[in-house]
Every structure is written in C-alpha cells, then in structure tokens.
Amino acid sequence: MTTSAASSRTVLIASAETDLRSRFAEALQQAGHRTLEAARTSDLLGLVDNDQPGVDLLLLDLGLAGSEGVALVRRVRDDAGSLPIIVFSGSVSSADEVPELAALGVTGYVNEHSEAQQILPSLAPHLFPDSFNRRSSPRVVLAIPVSYRVDNTIAGALTLNISKGGLAIRTMSPLAVSTKANARFRLPGSNREISADARAVWSDRRVGMGLQFEQMDAGDQTAVDEFVDLHDESDPDASRLI
C-alpha cells in the first residue's frame, strides 16, 4: 500500500551499514515515501543543514561517529533544530547515553534488525504523529525485541510502545484478552533483562496486542519508569528540544 503525495514523508537514513540503509529505504519507498541516505558523518551533516529543507525524520546509527554518537546528535541539533530523530537501538553503547539522548530530543528507538514488514508499523507514529492520540498514561514509541511466554510456549515480536504500566506489541498472532504471560525485554542501552508478569488487555490481529504489567521486580519497574519519564513528550518539564 502506498501513501498519497500529501502524506508522503522524506526520511534520512544515516548509517555506515549498506544493508541496513537499503532495507529501511526499500520498505519506506514501497510505501510511497522519499528516502535519503548518509554513509558518513559529513554526508549526514550536509543533508540536515538548515539550507536543505524537507527532511521529516532522521533514522540515526550512533556508530556513524564511532564513540562520539551523542556528540553527533548534538551537532545535528545545532544544524537542524527540531528535526525528529530516531536512533537505531543497537547503536546505543551504554545506559549512560540514554538520558543524554533524551535531553537532546531523541524521540524514539527502532530495532535495526527489523524485518521489512515490521519497519513501517514501527515508524508510523513518527511519520504521522498527529494520527496517534496520546492516552492518559504517557507512552513512548519504542521498537525493541520482546519475548513472551504462556505456559510452555514462547513467542517473540517487536514492541510498538511502552508505558509505566505495560507494552503494546506488534504481532499477527495476538493473545486472547485476559491471557496471562511473562514478558522479557531490554531497554535501549541497558544489559538488564526486564521480566514482567502481564495480562493481555486488548487484542487486534491487524495491529497486535497490549500487555498490562501485573507484577515485576521493583528494580525493573524503576528502570521502566525512568525510561518513560526521560522520553515522555507530554511532560512540560522534560529536558528536550522538541
């Protein structure tokens, strides 16, 4: 399915990995979006300069700048102001980078290993933010791997978003409402595996399902709470530029 010209977006994909750029570019182009690619820092900075209007979203591999990923985001901010930035989650080198990236206005993370059919659902909230209504509980758009276990059956998928109380998961085989499961995932930049006993509270084969946390370790809950607080765009006191 393609988008109309009015809803088409221009997405800049910045990574030294040719396969990564090509996979994301192909998925976006097939949906009618325009893509630009940057394989080097100099290419990226040239394309986001204020004299080059029209980029709607930046997908950024922090590894493009070696160990200076946060500094690269800062340079992009200096040149491109409020351009929405999504970071490839695997390029976050440590948990210490996450609050710095949040302060610089990084709006979300996407799994660089996403399969073609998962790319557009993961990016849709960033491509069309006005179409995604926020609920009373703050949610952060996040596409990371998650596994969930029901009895002796384990399945894997990608998250759509996370809140302090649960996860939305992209899957074509959602659990029935009220089904209990154990979900496990790692937040960007962290080696901590979070484990949560949860229950399916909504289920839709066209979209996926929502898992509501029912029980988790206090340290895991704190990690989730802090991550959501750092990236909650509805918080007027959050330290962010966009």
Rank of each mutant, 00 (worst) to 15 (best):
S82N: 11
S82H: 05
S82K: 10
L83S: 04
L83P: 09
L83M: 04
I85R: 00
I86R: 04
V87G: 05
V87Y: 08
S89M: 11
S89F: 07
V92D: 09
V92R: 00
S93H: 11
S94Q: 11
S94T: 14
S94C: 08
E97T: 06
E97F: 09
V98F: 10
P99L: 04
P99S: 05
E100M: 04
L101G: 01
L101M: 07
L101C: 06
L104W: 10
L104E: 15
V106D: 00
G108H: 03
Y109E: 03
Y109P: 00
Y109N: 01
Y109V: 03
V110E: 02
E112G: 00
H113D: 12
S114H: 05
S114T: 13
E115W: 09
E115F: 08
E115I: 07
A116V: 11
A116D: 12
Q117G: 09
Q117T: 13
I119F: 03
L120I: 15
L120P: 01
S122M: 13
A124D: 08
P125Q: 14
P125L: 15
H126Y: 12
H126G: 04
H126Q: 04
L127K: 02
L127I: 12
F128N: 02
F128Y: 14
D130T: 11
S131Q: 07
F132D: 07
F132E: 12
R134M: 08
R135L: 08
R135D: 06
S136G: 10
P138A: 06
R139F: 08
V141W: 02
L142I: 11
L142Y: 07
A143D: 13
I144V: 13
I144Q: 00
S147V: 13
S147R: 09
Y148V: 08
R149Y: 04
V150N: 10
D151N: 14
N152F: 13
N152M: 10
N152R: 07
N152P: 00
T153N: 05
T153C: 03
T153E: 13
A155P: 03
A157K: 02
L158I: 09
T159A: 02
T159H: 05
L160K: 14
L160A: 15
N161L: 04
S163I: 06
S163F: 10
K164A: 12
G165Q: 15
G165K: 07
G166Q: 12
G166S: 13
L167W: 06
L167K: 01
L167H: 06
I169L: 02
I169C: 01
R170S: 06
R170W: 03
T171I: 06
